[in-house]
């Protein structure tokens, strides 16, 4: 880039013209500036925000424990969602009508009811099942467990979030599998490979390119959805904040503590997703787009030449699939 700047051929004279005025831009810009100034003023002067309380509780033990619980819940629920999603997707694509309609029914049910209802449902599962026992179906039983000892609030939260997520993930995985060309399966069959091996060695690795980006979105979405577990008395980040402000009535500062933690973690996940997408974009395009750091390093800060705008084909990480 710098070489072209030094060895530039003689250019014909550039047009010098009076630029078009944009009074609308000045007006709208001024309005935004005033609104922003009001917001900043409020942030610093409103006593209800109480920044000293914010500082006091940001690294408070209970909040950090809640944060860890939120992260645990996100990871485990997503793991259940991904594994369950792959299984459901394979069932839906199966030649066996029993399997494919069972998967269809599952997806229909779990996508058709709000996840909050499902969470409360799992929390109250004792009222439906009572005891779980191991034995012969419709025959004698060998061991019996009390449901409440098995389904703690943590398990209820994991089941509610994970099983719901599996329904969404299965559609993502199915779309990925269907995006792989039929010819890949035929070529594998012609080589004497069997169905499971074709799926594992040939189809799924290629489907990953389609599956990974929306899975990143799902993970970010899941992190925030875990806050619903506070309603079933599971102490995650939001519940930890609630427990504190229920005692000291400093509601707003503690909600801000919680929100800032959510923003920090989603930001980290977004960065991770960007690099994951970049990794799986390999092979589809010949050259990878530069990372933000590379872009910064390449920027010629001393030059004032107007550069042609870089086509931004990047999809925003928050561009959801739902």
């Amino acid at each position: 880039m710098t070489e072209t700047d030094t060895a530039e051929p003689v250019r014909p004279e550039t047009i010098k013209a009076v630029p078009v005025r944009h009074p609308g831009r000045w007006v709208s810009g001024a309005i935004v500036l005033v609104l922003a100034a009001m917001l900043v003023h409020m942030l610093f002067t409103n006593p209800n925000l109480d920044w000293s309380t914010f500082g006091k509780y940001f690294f408070e033990h209970g909040i950090l424990k809640g944060l860890v619980a939120t992260l645990e819940l996100t990871v485990i629920a997503m793991a259940i969602g991904i594994v369950g999603g792959v299984v459901l997707a394979l069932m839906r694509l199966s030649a066996n009508p029993m399997l494919s309609s069972a998967a269809w029914l599952y997806i229909w049910f779990f996508r058709g009811t709000p996840v909050l209802v499902q969470l409360i449902f799992w929390f109250n599962i004792k009222a439906l099942i009572g005891d779980i026992s191991l034995g012969i179906p419709f025959g004698p039983t060998f061991i019996t467990w009390d449901v409440n000892s098995l389904v703690t609030t943590f398990v209820a939260a994991i089941l509610g979030l994970g099983l719901n997520e599996a329904a969404y993930m299965s559609e993502i995985v199915r779309a990925g599998i269907l995006s792989v060309d039929e010819g890949q399966t035929e070529a594998s069959q012609a080589l004497g490979m069997r169905r499971l091996k074709i799926m594992r060695r040939i189809v799924l690795p290629q489907a990953m390119r389609v599956i990974i980006p929306p899975t990143g979105n799902e993970t970010i979405s899941m992190l925030k959805t875990t806050s619903l577990a506070s309603t079933v008395a599971f102490t995650e980040l939001l519940k930890a904040g609630e427990d504190i402000f229920n005692a000291n009535y400093k509601t707003i500062p503690l909600l801000i503590v919680v929100s800032v933690w959510y923003i920090i973690v989603t930001s980290i996940l977004s960065v991770g997703q960007y690099y994951l997408e970049r990794h799986y974009g390999r092979g589809s395009s010949r050259q990878l787009p530069p990372t933000p750091l590379q872009r910064l390093l390449r920027m010629n800060l001393t030059s004032f030449h107007v550069r042609p705008p870089v086509p931004s084909a990047q999809r925003s990480p928050e561009g959801g699939i739902r």
Partner: peptide, 22 residues
């Protein structure tokens, strides 16, 4: 499994190559 066994002895080349891109 038996069909797959039979196909091992029969090579096939496709119009659109169908190489494994990964």
């Amino acid at each position: 499994s038996e069909v797959a066994r039979q196909r091992q002895d029969i090579g096939m080349v496709f119009q659109r190559f169908n190489l494994f891109p990964h």
